[in-house]
Design a protein around this nucleic acid. Structure first.
Length: 420
DNA sequence: ACGCCTTTGAAGTTT
DNA sequence: AAACTTCAAAGGCGT
């Protein structure tokens, strides 16, 4: 059952102020370095975000927004086990600082070349953002295999992430239209498309097609139309044939194991609870209530509008609604009673490293438990209230800020705070 | 030097 | 209207 009443934590959090401070500075430095290098999004490992907790992640986002004068979204990528900080909408022009950092799309001054490339679609932007990372993780991997990996990752991505990229694509299309007035996409006709096809390759294709029963020899004896294009025909038919075959991605080499965003609904049913005592999050609470109303849970619907009980059956739909830390100060937790793995010690830190055989959503639930620990930690320095799962975002923010200014004394103050 | 390959999606073309 | 085609990015490979 989804009980949201106060239950005191048995264990004290295992994070010191020094660790927290260092984690925040490291994460912020990393994000800044990534963005300065021209990448349009910054990726922070989930482990680092776990250290910061929701408030810290919110502060990280806010510092980033202040530094760049742009809004950022903060989303979880379960497959990459990372949190992605991505600008929402176009980056504002900053001529006095880094004009070169603007995306290269639509640059008009390329000599006298009139060719204007198409604006990228959402997936192309996504692929560009992820290409370097996938290459780094899979050295020597062929680009085609990289496309397969990123394509699979894109399909497993939450609707929120894909929508964010769609917005970016729309923004870039608008900028493209402004930079190229009168531009219109003019694809060549198939007959105009250049073909590089040697006799040898054509023979191989024909042999393969005939072997698969796609065409037979009689086709050559038919009266052929003037625009008959055997190469295009073979391309198309072989392509269609290949599309029906299961793709053996593992044959591409060092490809990370597939981690589809699915959970078996019959195993490990749990309730993930969300609460906020801050009025700012009423909209989120309402959306969660809507989510509650349209989904079924093993323990019945949630009666509280400010709480969500989510059964992880729908490909990360709750990931979209809950685990996305778009709002600073939002906390969520996994009650021990609903999470058997936590019952021995009441704390999920040990299990959190065992990522090999677990579904990413389950792992995220564990990190959610970790974050709640952090919330608890924050609250101890503020009001000694701590209704279970209730997060006082404001006091958390203030505490972290004071930690940041206290610098070297953070460790001392942290040990004092850890007293339960 | 430049098309092909591989992915998704937008947009134009053909049926 | 549906089906089909090109082309955006990436970079190694083949011609």
């Amino acid at each position: 059952m989804a009980d949201s009443t106060a239950v005191p934590r048995e264990n004290s959090p295992s994070i010191s102020g020094g660790q927290l401070l260092r984690g925040f500075v490291d994460a912020f430095d990393s994000v800044q370095a990534q963005l300065k290098s021209g990448i349009t999004q910054a990726v922070v490992p989930l482990t680092q975000i776990n250290l910061l907790g929701p408030e810290g992640a919110g502060i990280l986002k806010k510092h980033l927004e202040d530094a760049t004068n742009s809004r950022f979204s903060l989303t979880v990528n379960a497959i990459a086990n990372s949190v992605i900080l991505m600008p929402i909408g176009p980056m504002p022009p900053k001529p006095s600082v880094t004009a070169q950092g603007v995306a290269s799309a639509g640059k008009p001054s390329k000599g006298s070349n009139p060719k204007v490339p198409r604006p990228p679609n959402a997936f192309i932007i996504y692929r560009k953002d992820w290409h370097a990372r996938v290459v780094a993780e899979n050295p020597g991997l062929h680009n085609n295999a990289i496309s397969v990996i990123i394509g699979r990752q894109w399909r497993a991505e939450s609707e929120t992430v894909r929508a964010a990229y769609t917005r970016r694509a729309e923004d870039m299309k608008e900028q493209h239209a402004i930079a190229n007035p009168g531009y219109q996409y003019q694809p060549r006709k198939p007959s105009e498309k250049k073909k590089r096809m040697t006799k040898n390759k054509l023979a191989k294709l024909a042999a393969k097609a005939q072997e698969n029963g796609i065409i037979d020899g009689s086709i050559a004896q038919q009266t052929l139309p003037d625009d008959f294009d055997p190469v295009a025909m073979l391309d198309q038919q072989l392509g269609a044939c290949a599309a029906n075959q299961p793709m053996e991605v593992s044959s591409f080499g060092n490809v990370p194991a597939a981690q589809p965003l699915t959970l078996n609904p019959t195993t490990e049913p749990f309730v993930l609870t969300f609460e906020s005592n801050t009025q700012d999050y009423r909209g989120l609470a309402e959306s969660l209530a809507e989510f509650n109303a349209t989904h079924s849970y093993p323990n019945g619907p949630c009666e509280n509008n400010s709480a969500i009980g989510a059964q992880p059956i729908a490909n990360g739909q709750w990931l979209e609604n809950v685990v996305q830390h778009d709002l600073p100060g939002v906390g969520f937790y996994l009650p021990d009673s609903e999470y058997p793995q936590n019952q021995d010690n009441g704390f999920a830190s040990e299990q959190c490293n065992e990522t090999q055989d677990h579904d990413p959503l389950v792992e995220l639930a564990r990190t959610a438990a970790l974050e709640w620990e952090f919330d608890d930690f924050i609250d101890f320095n503020g009001e000694a209230n701590t209704t279970r799962g209730r997060v006082d975002g404001q006091s958390g923010v203030q505490d972290l800020n004071s930690l940041l200014t206290q610098d070297n004394e953070a460790d001392n103050s942290a040990s004092a705070m850890q007293a339960t």
